[in-house]
Each structure stands twice: as C-alpha cells, then as structure tokens.
Design a protein around this nucleic acid. Sequence first.
DNA 1: CTGTTAGCGCCTTCAA
DNA 2: TTGAAGGCGCTAACAG
Lengths: 373, 373
Amino acid sequence: MANKKNKRSTGSLKKPALMDIRTVAEHASVSIATVSRTINHVPTVNAKMAKRVWEAIRELNYFPNTQARALVSGRSGLLGLIVSEITNPFFPELIQGFEDVAVENGYEILISSTNYDPKRMSLCIRRMLERKTEGVAVMTFGIEEPLLEQLAERNIPMVFVDVGPDSPGTSVLKVDYHHGIRQGVQHLAALGHRDIAFVSGPARLHSAQSRLNAFSKSLNECGIALDPAWIVEGDHTLEGGILAMEKLLAGDKLPTAVMCSNDMTAIGVLHKVYRAGLRIPDDLSIIGFDDIQMARVTIPPLTSIQMSRLELARAAVTALRAHLEGTETHREYKIDTHLVVRESTGYPPGAMEHLQQSGQRNGQDSAVKRKKV
Amino acid sequence: MANKKNKRSTGSLKKPALMDIRTVAEHASVSIATVSRTINHVPTVNAKMAKRVWEAIRELNYFPNTQARALVSGRSGLLGLIVSEITNPFFPELIQGFEDVAVENGYEILISSTNYDPKRMSLCIRRMLERKTEGVAVMTFGIEEPLLEQLAERNIPMVFVDVGPDSPGTSVLKVDYHHGIRQGVQHLAALGHRDIAFVSGPARLHSAQSRLNAFSKSLNECGIALDPAWIVEGDHTLEGGILAMEKLLAGDKLPTAVMCSNDMTAIGVLHKVYRAGLRIPDDLSIIGFDDIQMARVTIPPLTSIQMSRLELARAAVTALRAHLEGTETHREYKIDTHLVVRESTGYPPGAMEHLQQSGQRNGQDSAVKRKKV
DNA sequence: CTGTTAGCGCCTTCAA
DNA sequence: TTGAAGGCGCTAACAG
C-alpha cells in the first residue's frame, strides 16, 4: 500500500525522471482523477483546484504520456498517411497539406512510404495497425488487393485514391484525370500538334494506367490517331523521363509534342531534349502532370496539369473524419484536374514558318496565352 | 474471476474487434506469458508451443499493441526527426536516409517539420516528448536556445546539426561547410572569376551564417575582395532565389559568378537569369549547395556542393544509438562537403575571347572537367 | 521451461 | 464535484 508511495518518494524533489500524473496530483494536493479531468478539460472541475493543478503541471514541466492515454482511451489521436515515394516532390507537398489539415482537426500524423514495394506496403499497413492509427489515408495511387483486406478486416477507417473497395468504412478519392488531360491534349491540338507521344508511369500503378487511358481517349476525341510506338513506359522518376526520351529520340520519327504522366518524368524529358540540342517549345512541346512547385521554374517553365495537393489532403481528412464520427459509411470524393499553360508548349515545328513567324525563337513569348510565373 | 473470461467469450469466434494477447493464448492453449515470449523471440520457448502460438497468431491475424508494449517496456521503438521544411527536396532525401538507417537498426521514425517557426518547433519537441521517442534528431540546421533546455531536461538523447549544447546525452553533427565552399570558390577563381556574389539563406538560420562565413573566408584565401553589395539575403526557397537575382541584376555592376546557400536558391537564380536572357555559364556562373537530385537535371546541370544526406542520417542514428546504449555521452561527428562540378560554371565573360575560344557557346562542353549526369 | 501476478500511466465508472 | 479503484494490453519478475 504505502509501498508504491515509498517507491516514488525515495529521492529528493528533483527527480524529473519519473514525472507522472501522480507526481502532479501530490504536488497539487488533489487526486489523480482530478488531474486527469483538468488536463482533459472536463468542465466540472472546481476552478480553484484546476488552477492548482495547472500550476503544478507548469512547475514540474509535466505532460501526459500519450501511450498510456491511448491505451486506456482507445484513441491514439493519430492519422496514418501512406505515400509511395517521399523523394518525389509531389508527395512532400501532399504530406504538408495532410499534416496541416490533420492538425487543424486535432490529429497528429504518422507517415510511411512504400517505395512502390509491395513488401514495404505490407509493413506500412502493419505499422499503422500496430500504432493504432484511427484512420489511414493510402495515397499511393494504387494498392495490391490482398493488402486491402488486412486493413478492411480491422474495420479501421480508410481512404484511397482512385481505386479502393466499396466496403463500409472506406472512401475513395476519385481523381478526374480525364478533365485535365483532355484540356492538355486539346491545347496541343489547337496549336496544331498531331504527333503526340506519351511517357507513361509504371504499368502496374493504377493511376498511371488511368492517365494513359485518359490520354488515349482524349486523343480520340480530337480525331488524332494513336501511334503505339509513341507510348513509352516511364516510372515517374527523373531517370525514367530521360530514358523514355532517349527511346523517343531513337525512333524513326519524332513526335512534335510529349505528354508525361508526371512532372518528374517531364523534367527528365526536358533535360534529355536539352542534351539533344533541341529547343523547347520550338522543336518539341512538353506537358507534365501534377504541377509541382518546381514546374514554375524549369527552363522553360513547364506546362502541366494540376492536381491540387491541398484538395486531396482536405478530402482525405474529411473522409476519415466522416467515418470516425459515423456520419458516412462509404463515399466517393471527386478531385478535379486542370491544365496550367506555361512555356513548354507552342506551335509544332514548321507551323511558325508556315505562319510567317519564323523569327520567334525565344520561349519567353509565344502566340498562346501564358501564365506568369 | 470468471468475469473477465465471460466478458471476452460472449460473442462467437468471429470477433476481430478485440484481439489481444489473451485471445491468442486461449487459442493456442498456453499462457499469455508464453505468447509474449514467443512474440519477442525469447529463446527459451518450447518449439512445439511456439509453433502453436504462431499458428494462432496467423489464424487470428493478430499483432501486438505497440502502445501497451511501449507503456510497460518503457521502449517506444521510435526515433524522432525534426526537419525545417518538408517541401525543400533536401529534407525528403534526408528523411528517406534517416528512415532507412533507423529501420536497419530496428526503429521506426516520427517526423515533424517546423517550417522555420519557433512556435511549431516547440510543438514538435513536445510531440516527441509526449510520444516518448527514445531519441530525437533535430535537423533544422539551427534552433532557439530555450527550446533545447526543454529537451535536455528530459535527458532524452539528442543529436543536432552544426550547433547544440555540449551537455551529456547530446551530440552534434559538425558540417564542414568550409571544405566544400572553398573548393567552390577556388573552382571559380581558377576559371578566372573575381566578381563573385553570394545569395545567403535566412539570416537567423545558423547553418546559413556558417555558409556565408565560409564563403567570405574562402574568398579571402583566394585574395579576392568581398563586395558587400554582392551579398544578398535569400531564404532558401525558389522564390527567394528569384528575388535575390533580381536584386543582383538591378545593381550597378553584374558579378560573373553567383554562389548560393542552397540548391533551391540556385534554381531560382537559374530561372531568373534565363528570364533575363543571359546564358549560363557563358554570361554568369552559378554554384548551388546541397546537391539535391534535381541538380543533375537543371538546365544547365548545376555545379553544387554536396552534403551527403545519407552520411548525415547515418551519423545521426549512430549518435542516438551510442547514447541509448550508454557508449557515448557527448561527441561531435564531422560531416564533409565537397564540390561537384557540372555545367553551370565556366569562364567569366570575356575570358573566352581572350583565349581565342569565342566559338564555344554551348554549355555541353567546356574547358573544365565535367561530371557526366 | 511455463504460468501466475504485479504493475507501466492513464481514464472512467462508481460511491461519497 | 471529488476520490478510490478497476482495468486498457502487455512485459517482466517471480515461483513452480
């Protein structure tokens, strides 16, 4: 009985090593229950006592143990975020947004990245489960089916991008790739491009497929034939973009425009084109996807299709909260995409001469309306 | 007595909601202690029982509750990482390295970013403390003094970059800015540059100051005078780089080379120079700092001073582990930096004519040895 | 080598 | 309104 007390009162007052709710209670001469209630802002606490408690807390520089709190309350206050690759600038921008929104809603976040590796994805999920996250956003833009079940079985709220089960407790953020990509293709078509190549993302990635499909469909809508030789597979990295452009350059005929599955790819392509001594957009037009920050300052600035990170983040947290509060069981959220025209797109080669404008060789001004950086 | 058992056995076998160590124990007909031992790979468990336990675990799809485990064992298995800004590509690359090394060592990581805001820094620290991280790496390249104390008081192992207290339980990673920056300045001097500007980082950031000092010192060593008008303050962002270059362009006289406190700044500068219609490196040479991935594919590829993320990450985890194991009380780790020459640096304007080489106008080849991308 | 038991730090019924 | 007491799920002594 006194045993426990003795254990804690052996040392002098300066024992910051063990600093628990009991220490505070003793210091403020109240019970631990009162301290707990004070901390959790239970309104029924006497103002005087509360003040004493807060003083003790400040004096001792005490703060609660999240682990213990979570264990007993069942609430970890954690929202999980799984992304594919943290070194692709798109994701940090997404993480930033997700964290901001989560914090606004009183949550902290736990981040894991899969590096496109199913094994790591499995670990990520396990980690989320073990740490008892209250909900998890799987923003990898594609996920292996069997892994979903692991999560679904635990009936912990989830939100996916593009594709996910329609089981209760899970929502999905449907990105409208077609809208933005069609704008891009139409933009190119309007400039006079007919020979348009596409550097895709990794084939197994769902969102990469969707982008390719949207491209193909848009081309059709514009009455342009799709030459299979101009579909080359990238992997959403700089290196992949460079390699893809090399293949394109080695082909029989060069396209006049290249659309890319993401901006990293586009930047790689941009670089390879520069290496090849071709000019952008005079010799080749390029369009990216994502509209990362960096797109504004590439040389020339990259025309890209924007997918709002903040919108994605906000929708994800909203969905998770809806599940947590039982407001919603399953829902789809639509995320829009749209074209941002900069300076990597212009008339196809030959068109300028045809229009008697061959003197214009500087990417800074062209016939299309441009967005200032 | 039977009360507890009744509570858990009310439902049918299909109650995945409550899935604790007891369920597993019952399922495998062993005590919870044996289950615990099995999970923790205590070697003294009977192979037969262990097998039964693992089967039960698999069948029930059970996994331990990290919170409870941490609470009782006192080990959270968490290493904290505080960075300043997740949208600056340097940091994701650092995070990636830190995570990899942490995982190699059996730890998970908890990330927080401060966005250079002291208030957020305070929150980050509190968060690390509350979540009971076993050690934290403060990689913000500068921190307010009072905050350190909060951490130091808890005597939780810490590691800082550049500057930190020399109290026991904390180590510091001393980056040798001077080595790399001197290489950079010497490189420029060797090419014939005398008019070298510097775009610094935010003044209050310690590492930014160190970089500026290293620059100033190196200039001295080369016998070059430092013109104060050519020191302009940036903020380590793209936008800051653009603004800084604008200031430089508006000055009375243009430098022939610009050194930047980080790569994001350099990319901003690169962009502004492009906008101004000047050529790199023919009209202006540029050197960055950090050597982020993107530096390889800027146009032209950026000469930069590399600071290895992996080396930083590895040293940080090593330091933390040393503290955790009591091997070390305080130590400084030296992190080297060195120049990576690419194509954004060349002879100052006029030098080529002087050398009768005025025909060379293409950034792809120049008289200095270049690293292939 | 296995099982029983006492907490880890906290929240949350219950009486008072 | 406050305090006492019983767990949350797990590990780590301690007996057997």
